[in-house]
Design a protein around this nucleic acid. Structure first.
Lengths: 167, 167
DNA sequence: CGCAATGAGTTGCAATAAGCAACCTAAAGC
DNA sequence: GCTTTAGGTTGCTTATTGCAACTCATTGCG
């Protein structure tokens, strides 16, 4: 991961990249959504090295994504489960999986999201306005908030002038 | 990144983690959305090492996220811009940034997404049913598609029985 | 009670990837 | 022609990952 990143400071995408930006963390979170709870379950399902898993779980607990709790029925087992902030990652996970399903698994449909109740397919997650219209890249802008630091501010100022048109 | 991952094979989340799951790729894509086009611009904006940037751009081009084109006005400059699949990452990027803004930048608002036309705030990206209702984690399920391999199938079968309730 | 088994880690070491500076090549500018 | 600029690549150092073995507390069992 990046140690010396000038724009890492204040940008939310930089922060979330720092947390989720490695080869395992997103998979750990996927497993948590699939119901995996204990250390050994994560290890078995993912084939992840134990020391790496240990480090990732620690980080996710510290970040407030997972909660660590020793089971009361068996004090050996430790349960990791998604907190409310962790559950709030659902749109991220679903949009990632949908994108990958469309663009990375060409011609094949390995998996899809459905409504549990009806079995109906879930349409692609989209960025929408308050009135519900789907917004494309050119319809939205990132603007600096009150707590933006100087780097972020100047970066966003430079960006507004350049439009995002497809290649 | 993970070399030996049993569940890496067919799951879209595993595939997208393999592509985007490192400390730089998401930041490169953010820069592309902000209008960054050339090698030196990416280097300056991100503070990324040149060899790493070179490798990431290659990977993203091969994955079809970015298009590489030599400028016709100056044959020294190479332009990298988002393809349509790349632009389709918008919901991923926005949902990530919104999540980080809510949960990783406590008490501060470094940046927000607005409609370019009106300046209105963009509400949180959500998973919705075909009829537009917001769906939570317990309302949705992942099911194996026709091309799911055996690992993915058995993994998803095991998951449906376990419900996802908050910690 | 004694003891093997289980769950959750930690530690040490080899392999791999990231970070950094220097170098290279081709095209522009003058 | 000579310098500058853009876009890389190469070699070397340092950090991270992967793997196996080990620890340590708890628990089921005879």
């Amino acid at each position: 991961m990046s140690k010396t990143n000038p724009f890492q400071s204040n940008c939310p995408i930089a922060r979330v990249t720092h947390l989720l930006g490695d080869g395992w963390t997103l998979l750990v979170i996927r497993e948590a959504f699939l119901g995996t709870r204990t250390f050994n379950e994560f290890e078995r399902e993912l084939g992840i090295a134990r020391n790496i898993l240990s480090a990732r779980l620690k980080t996710l607990v510290k970040a407030g994504v997972l909660a660590r709790r020793v089971s009361e029925v068996d004090r050996r087992v430790v349960e990791y489960r998604l907190t409310q902030p962790g559950l709030d990652l659902l749109p991220v996970l679903v949009s990632l999986a949908q994108w990958a399903g469309r663009h990375l698994c060409c011609e094949s449909v390995p998996m899809r999201f459905v409504e549990r109740a009806s079995g109906a397919d879930i349409p692609p997650v989209a960025v929408r306005s308050a009135t519900g219209e789907v917004l494309g890249p050119s319809a939205i802008a990132m603007v600096a908030g009150p707590q933006a630091d100087d780097q972020l501010k100047s970066r966003l100022d430079r960006a507004v002038s350049t439009s995002v048109r497809p290649a």
